[in-house]
C-alpha cells in the first residue's frame, strides 16, 4: 500500500462525505446505518469513475459487524478488490483532543482527520474540566456537535479512535461520573445497545439519529443542556 501511495494514489475515508458524490440510497436496506450506506455509496461512486484500486475494510471488533458483512458481500458478488483488516492495537496513543477545550465540532474534525494525517503544526491542546460529555461514534450530521459547549469531553468509540485503540471496549464504556452526558448513536447501529444502557446507567441522554438531526432531536439536546447546565446554546 505504501508503494501505491508513493506512486500517487489517494486515500479516501469512505465514512466521510466525498465532494461531488451524493449518497445513493440504493445498495442497502432502508433500515440500515447511514454511515455504512455512505461507505457503500462512496465505493460504487468511485468505482464508476474508474478511480478505485482497493477498499481497505475494517472488519474486526474495531468496527462493527455491519462492515464485515458488507465486505463479504462485495467480495462474493463484485470484482471490487477488498482488503479485510482488523485493528486490535491495545497500545494507547492518548486522547488530548477529546479532553481539550476546543469547540466540539473542531475536536471531532481533528480526530476524524487524524486517521490519515498528522495533527496540524502548532496545534496546542489544553485540557479543560468537562462540563458535559458526548459519547459515541462520529455522527453522520456534524451539525449536532454545534449544540454543545466547548468544555464537552468526547467519550466512547471516538475517544478510542483518537487513542488508536478502536477495539478497546473497556475504554469505549468509560464516562466521567457526574458529568451530564449525551449518548449518541446512529440509528440501526449495533452500538445503540451500549448507548441506550449506558445512558440509563449514568442518568444521561440517549440520542439516536438517522442521517440529519430533526427539530425534535435538536430541542431534546438543548433541553438536556439547559436543565443540567443552564446552557442555552451559543447565541
Amino acid at each position: 500500500m505504501q508503494e501505491r501511495v508513493e506512486n500517487g494514489a489517494l486515500i479516501f475515508d469512505l465514512d466521510e462525505p466525498l465532494a461531488g458524490r451524493p449518497v445513493k440510497d440504493i445498495y442497502l436496506p432502508n433500515a440500515y446505518c447511514s454511515i455504512l450506506k455512505r461507505v457503500v455509496s462512496n465505493i460504487f461512486s468511485l468505482r464508476e469513475d474508474g478511480g478505485l484500486d482497493l477498499v481497505i475494510a475494517t472488519v474486526g471488533k474495531c468496527k462493527c459487524d455491519g462492515m464485515r458483512n458488507i465486505a463479504s458481500w462485495l467480495e462474493r458478488t463484485t470484482d471490487i478488490p477488498i482488503l479485510k483488516v482488523e485493528n486490535d492495537n491495545a497500545k494507547g496513543a492518548g486522547f488530548p483532543i477529546s479532553r481539550s477545550g476546543l469547540p466540539l465540532l473542531k475536536k471531532m474534525e481533528l480526530i476524524v482527520n487524524s486517521v490519515f494525517a498528522p495533527l496540524p503544526d502548532g496545534l496546542t491542546l489544553e485540557e479543560c474540566a468537562p462540563k458535559c460529555g458526548f459519547w459515541g461514534v462520529p455522527p453522520y450530521d456534524f451539525g449536532i456537535l454545534e449544540l454543545f459547549p466547548d468544555e464537552t469531553h468526547i467519550f466512547g468509540w471516538t475517544r478510542c479512535m483518537e487513542n488508536k485503540t478502536p477495539a478497546d471496549i473497556e475504554m469505549e464504556c468509560e464516562v466521567a461520573s457526574g458529568v451530564p452526558t449525551v449518548f449518541f448513536t446512529q440509528s440501526f447501529c449495533q452500538k445503540s445497545a451500549f448507548a441506550y444502557n449506558l445512558a440509563r446507567e449514568h442518568g444521561g441522554l440517549y440520542v439516536e439519529v438517522d442521517k440529519m438531526m430533526s427539530h425534535s432531536t435538536r430541542a431534546k439536546i438543548e433541553a438536556f443542556l439547559e436543565f443540567n447546565l443552564g446552557w442555552r446554546g451559543k447565541r
Binding site: S187, L205, Y206, E208, S214, S216, T217, A223, F224, F227
Partner: peptide, 10 residues
C-alpha cells in the same frame, strides 16, 4: 425540580 426528561424523536 426537573430530575429526568426524554423525547421520542425518531
Amino acid at each position: 425540580r426537573v430530575a429526568g426528561m426524554d423525547w421520542n424523536t425518531e
